[in-house]
Design a protein around this nucleic acid. Structure first.
Lengths: 219, 219
DNA sequence: GGAGGTATGTTGCCTACGCAACATAATATA
DNA sequence: TATATTATGTTGCGTAGGCAACATACCTCC
């Protein structure tokens, strides 16, 4: 466990908490490290989830299989990503997604009840931990809201613009880099990759934007 | 304030807390009642939000104006609805929506910090309150996720089916009532009202579903 | 440098669905 | 019961964008 302390100090969950206190907290909230093999399921669609997790190493993905058998990627997970945060805090707990290890990896697993129960020993910064947690849940909600914001736009062009304007704002600059390749971007906006490329080209021609690969510029 | 205690006891925020304790808590968390006139803005798009609210009476709506000047309804609010729960708990606090009173109404306004700070007097069930709050935030996230689930479906028929199957599951019955009229349903699924009606009729013809108004049946 | 692999762009075809306009049904008003 | 009003259903038309197929750029590894 100890070897992870440094990494944990960098996570949103433990933000603002000193390492020695993190160590104490980990015991208090009954956190444990769980290892997964490549392709193993961390969460199975439909199962009940009471523990949330923080990725300590490796890569994973959250996905679901739709009625037609297609795989829909919900999120990609890397070191530091949270798993099942909303689920564990919700009231139904039933997972709409599966989470799978894409390579051997380890996860810090925390029972939600351990987090939320005030420990008898009143350990320092448990409050801060809780506040961080709420913050994470809220931010996840914001992220979902922002995606819906794009998805609701009627045309491909408006979807793209909504997305680009947001990223530009976030990075505080008219020139910016998006964290997607074309395929991922098309999935995020729920449009065809080719249709995306087509519209991007048109928008460039129309003098609305400029771009090369994942570098964009709003004009 | 007192006259609202009974209503508050019914809300998700105060679920499982007795009325006398609610009264104490209200003071502890520095809640106050705020009145709004018809058409007044409770939250203004772009403003920073540090307090969340619980609707005590009346109706309101959350909306945003998109780039083309169209009004997009995000949610409708009624007695018991929460306002700005995710915002107040988030880290940016900047509201992507406006919230407006559609008639004279009152709101219980609670500073997020009041909620999350452990009161010195260690008042009973403050923990429960916090747990309820996290629960609400998480559920809001689930609701957004579920909508995205529909929006991502490529065809109108699949969007409809995804939605109907979910509501059917929620109500635990193949016959059920949806909380939308056609127009609201079409907005939720982000499709044209006429296209929705058209597809619903086809699905009935195909023996997939049966319906009359807002009553549906999966076959 | 060549050869294979992957990411991105281009284009023609075709249809699902947005849009508008109208029809019918349900509900309210008087 | 007549009349206005609002919800829902129907239909024809035109096109945005899905789909498939191919083109080009970029990258990696012999």
């Amino acid at each position: 466990m100890k070897n992870y302390l440094e990494d944990l100090a960098q996570t949103a969950l433990f933000a603002g908490i000193e390492q020695e206190n993190i160590e104490k907290l980990l015991g208090c909230i009954q956190a444990k490290v769980v290892e997964y093999k490549k392709d193993e399921l961390i969460i199975e669609e439909g199962s009940k989830v009471y523990d949330f997790g923080i990725m300590l190493s490796g890569h994973g993905r959250a996905f679901k299989i739709d009625t037609m058998g297609r795989i829909i990627i919900i999120t990609l997970l890397k070191k530091g990503s949270e798993i099942g945060v909303i689920l564990a805090a919700g009231s139904d707990h039933k997972s709409p997604v599966s989470v799978q290890a894409q390579e051997d990896l380890s996860v810090l697993s925390v029972p939600f009840d351990g987090l939320i129960m005030r420990c008898k020993n009143n350990c320092p910064q448990h409050d801060r931990l809780l506040r961080n947690y709420i913050n994470i849940v809220a931010e996840k909600g914001m992220v979902l809201h922002e995606r819906i914001d794009c998805l609701l736009k009627p045309t491909v062009r408006e979807k793209i613009m909504t997305y680009l304007v947001r990223v530009s704002r976030e990075q505080g600059c008219r020139t910016f880099t998006i964290p997607f390749d074309r395929y991922a971007m098309s999935e995020y906006l729920n449009i065809e990759r080719s249709a995306l490329s087509r519209e991007l080209s048109k928008m460039k021609r129309d003098g609305l934007i400029d771009f090369h690969k994942s570098e964009f510029k709003l004009l």
